[in-house]
């Protein structure tokens, strides 16, 4: 996990139980991204990634939480987001990260697309226990 120099401002938690919560998660991420000085393009990339991951948490994980945290490392500020669910987990991570592959009704771009939009991406999943995806976007 990314940890050096966590900002002490504290983690914000957003429940993800309905599609309204996906909207709220996007809004929270936007606020943090602006606060951390991300450029407009980087804000847009991070909010879009958050939207993909929050929807995954809802549709595949059966709901969960997003925790959002401003972070700082080597003088650069950024936003770290963790999406956690206690759903069925992902049996084949390589397959799930492949473009165009989807177990649901999406385009199969959620995970792989979100990974391209952020600077750091970590996926932890245990079958029958759940999935946590953690991403970081740094200001330039």
């Amino acid at each position: 996990m990314t940890s050096p120099g966590l900002d002490p401002e504290g983690t914000r938690i957003q429940l993800i139980a309905t599609s309204d919560d996906v909207v709220r998660a996007r809004q929270l991420v936007r606020t943090l991204a602006v606060g951390c000085g991300l450029s407009l393009v980087d804000q847009t990339k991070l909010v879009t990634a958050a939207s993909e991951l929050a929807r995954n948490t809802l549709s595949y994980g059966g709901g969960g939480t997003m925790s959002a945290l401003p972070v700082e490392r080597n003088g650069r500020r950024g936003v770290r987001l963790s999406f956690t669910d206690e759903g069925p987990g992902i049996p084949d991570i390589d397959l799930a990260l492949r473009d165009g592959w989807s177990s649901g009704s999406g385009m199969g771009l959620g995970l792989s697309g979100a990974r391209r939009l952020v600077d750091e991406f970590e996926l932890r999943t245990v079958v029958d226990e759940g999935t946590t995806v953690t991403v970081v976007k740094w200001s330039r």
Partner: peptide, 14 residues
């Protein structure tokens, strides 16, 4: 479409 949205869509693979 906003420029940032176009840039993001391409990176997303859409």
């Amino acid at each position: 479409m906003r420029p940032a949205v176009a840039i993001t869509l391409v990176e997303l693979g859409l």
